[in-house]
Design a protein around this nucleic acid. Structure first.
Lengths: 217, 217
DNA sequence: CTGCCTATTGTCCTTTGGTGCAGTACGGAG
DNA sequence: CTCCGTACTGCACCAAAGGACAATAGGCAG
């Protein structure tokens, strides 16, 4: 039986890391030095492929990403990262960027889009925002995962009953819909309430919303 | 008593209008001609102030907005419009725009940020997206307003009971919290369920979510 | 003053929901 | 084959919700 202790923060202490992805070696070392001086942990990568190859997704942080790179471009990395389950906020950096690219990047969820030469007064606030966003999204994802785990602990039949309960149907109605006795529905209902750790239909509805269960069904 | 017929589409037939705001008269006429040819209704304005002065908010459509204008800039208009209750999607147009401006505009919710010279193949898709977004948001707002109206029909006491019901509390508990008899709570509860036109706590929760009632309380 | 709304409470009765206890049936894992 | 989880069901009991009918009291508009 899954005796899941609720809301255990996933390794909270892991300090955020700035992932610098840029094909220009001198820029990488310069920015790494700058960020180190600012008190950040830094990892540098010469290409998007390198980054994707070694990134595990469990490290909080953000990405400082050059738009123009041989091979996978910054935008490519962005969409690849977005497809993953643990996307990091991205701060783009470009030497000769154009507006359409910046628009596309922002629309795809970039935290910022900065131009070289990079000034500390611009970079550091952007990083702060990106890290804050990452922390917030990470927390949301953790919560969501925890809830989804509860929903996955339900048996198919319980899930079925759940959808009817969420529609506000009476046990009697659910019973006739599912061609079962009212007693059976009560049993499933009690089980699912226990598994989802809620006491009332009101709580149940909230949980279903948070976990995105209502929308998917 | 408010015998509100639910979901009456607000003057659905009103065709969307493109509001062109640009200080360059020749550009205004050129773009107006282009849009007319595309089958759109167009209104032009020489300044952000002009637009804000005559815009009523009940017309669906979108704004084609120049960034650089004397007086209020495009970004100023954007934030003014966003503060209103019926914001229109904005497609920015700029002659000599810079990336920071485009980033700011996109972050503030602009639908797109285009550069002159304007190509039809770029402009028209942007307008289509903006109009689609407007239609969608307008529908959401209408639904939201309709629901909010229901909530405003509640008496203060009923609202108070509602918040407790949404927490999943029993009538008995609510009664003791509000220092009233259980019978009184039942009365308020029945009243508010009727006013909100819901049959079950499940529906009630959904409605409260949609109307943003749960979050504000 | 009168009528209407809001808030309050009561009693009585019915319908639902929730739970304890108990039992049947089926299919997969060991 | 046995154990276990899942699904299903019955009976009984109690708690909670909700409707019917009725009544008191204060505030406010006409």
């Amino acid at each position: 039986m899954s005796n899941c202790l609720s809301s255990q923060a996933t390794v909270t202490a892991a300090s955020p890391t700035i992932f610098v992805v840029d094909d220009d070696a001198s820029f990488r070392t310069a920015i790494a030095r700058l960020l180190h001086a600012g008190g950040y942990a830094v990892q540098t990568f010469a290409s998007a492929t390198d980054f994707l190859g070694s990134f595990r997704g469990d490290t909080p942080g953000c990405v400082l990403l050059d738009v123009h790179m041989p091979g996978l471009t910054g935008l490519d990395l962005q969409s690849a990262l977005a497809r993953g389950e643990n996307p990091l906020p991205i701060v783009f950096i470009t030497g000769q960027g154009d507006i359409p690219t910046s628009v596309q990047a922002m629309r795809a969820g970039a935290e910022d889009f900065l131009t070289k030469p990079l000034r500390k007064a611009v970079l550091f606030p952007a990083i702060t925002r990106a890290l804050a966003r990452d922390a917030q999204e990470r927390q949301q994802r953790a919560r969501r995962r925890e809830l989804r785990a509860r929903f996955e602990a339900l048996t198919p039949r319980e899930r079925e009953v759940l959808t009817h309960v969420l529609r506000g149907q009476l046990n009697k109605q659910i019973a006739s819909d599912l061609a079962a006795s009212e007693r059976t529905i009560k049993a499933h209902r009690a089980n699912l309430m226990a598994k989802l750790q809620v006491q009332s239909v009101a709580e149940l509805g909230q949980l279903a919303h948070e976990a995105g269960f209502a929308s998917q069904q």
